[in-house]
């Protein structure tokens, strides 16, 4: 363990190498490096093969269809290069759906995360029975979309719906939810928030509980009030988890379509269509697999850009915050 010269050059050549292991010989070091890779391969390869079988290959196949014209069951696919993509960006049906996916996703994310944050603050108080509250709030996330959207539709029925019956009973005009774009969007957002707020609250709660308690005590010594503590300790402490929650929520909100399918069905006049809903319709109703593939690729590109951007940012800040801790640990 005292061939310092060699260890030094290793560390210089590979700053990422595990310093703590201090390999003795070149060949041993070589084997050690291989052992990690081999172990990783043994573990990962079967898992990745199964993953490829179930979702990797089919998705890739679906994407490739984006470069083919394939309309109708009896048709056979013909390679057409980027024509589908050109059509995508020329046709207002697709660009409109894409744009709607983005802002509707943003809206759903914003409302869910804000209300979830409020709930998490309350759940973080030393209340009796907060476990029960947590469960109650999370229940909507557990239910199946098909079943609960049916219930929403019973509420929104123009003629016999629960809400319009109520409006009529207090002498107000019933509202035709189905022929108003604004209300359509409103109910899609309400449904999504209803389903998502409990999960968001749990994530925020986990974040709140991972904030260093010493900081609160220090703030109290400084005479900070509830609001000041929230602003100066809680929110800055939550910054890392906030980014994670925001990105993952946004990515799933951009892809919502089941609630659109079951609540508005894209109507009225296609004004609430979102891109994944369009993909679904192209794929199954019109059997236009080419456009469905092209739209999926566009969607995937957007989502992957967001992910890569996020991950790059995350690993940067990761190094900033966690590396010193690790070094400290190893030194001891």
């Amino acid at each position: 363990m005292n061939r310092d010269g060699k260890t030094m050059t290793t560390a210089a050549a590979m700053p990422n190498a595990p310093v703590g292991r201090q390999p003795q010989h070149l060949w041993k070091r070589f084997r050690t490096r291989h052992r990690d890779a081999m172990l990783a391969a043994v573990i990962l390869i079967p898992m990745i093969v199964f993953w490829l079988l179930l979702s990797g290959f089919p998705t890739l196949f679906g994407f490739l269809l984006g470069f083919f014209r394939w309309v109708g069951l009896a048709d056979s696919p013909a390679f057409i290069g980027f024509d589908n993509f050109v059509h995508f960006f020329k046709d207002p049906v697709y660009t409109g759906a894409l744009w709607r996916s983005i802002w509707l996703g943003g809206l759903v994310t914003g409302v869910t995360l804000l209300s979830g944050f409020g709930a998490a603050l309350l759940m973080n108080m030393p209340l009796k029975g907060k476990g029960v509250y947590r469960s109650i709030w999370y229940i909507p996330a557990v239910t199946s979309t098909v079943a609960t959207t049916q219930i929403f539709n019973l509420f929104l029925d123009t003629n016999n719906g629960v809400i319009n019956n109520f409006l009529k009973s207090i002498g107000k005009e019933p509202i035709v939810w189905q022929y108003s774009v604004g209300w359509g969007i409103f109910w899609i957002v309400v449904y999504s928030v209803w389903k998502g707020v409990g999960g968001a609250a749990l994530l925020w709660l986990a974040g709140l509980q991972s904030v260093d308690h010493n900081l609160y005590e220090a703030a109290e010594v400084d005479g900070a009030g509830t609001w000041a503590k929230l602003r100066n300790v809680t929110i800055p402490g939550l910054k890392p988890i906030a980014t994670y929650i925001f990105i993952t929520s946004l990515i799933s909100a951009i892809q919502i379509y089941e609630q659109v399918l079951f609540i508005t069905n894209g109507g009225p006049y296609g004004k609430t269509e979102v891109l994944v809903f369009r993909i679904y319709r192209d794929g199954f109703w019109d059997f236009n697999l080419g456009m469905a593939g092209a739209s999926s690729l566009v969607m995937a590109a957007i989502v992957i850009v967001i992910t890569v951007f996020y991950y790059g940012w995350a690993t940067r800040s990761d190094r900033r915050t966690t590396i010193p801790v690790k070094t400290l640990g190893r030194g001891g």
Binding site: I48, P58, T59, I279, G283, S296, A300
Partner: peptide, 16 residues
């Protein structure tokens, strides 16, 4: 792997 996790899966139903 992380990126692939995020892409829409609707398109994969018929290929699957």
């Amino acid at each position: 792997l992380l990126a692939t996790q995020m892409i829409p899966t609707t398109i994969a139903i018929i290929p699957t």
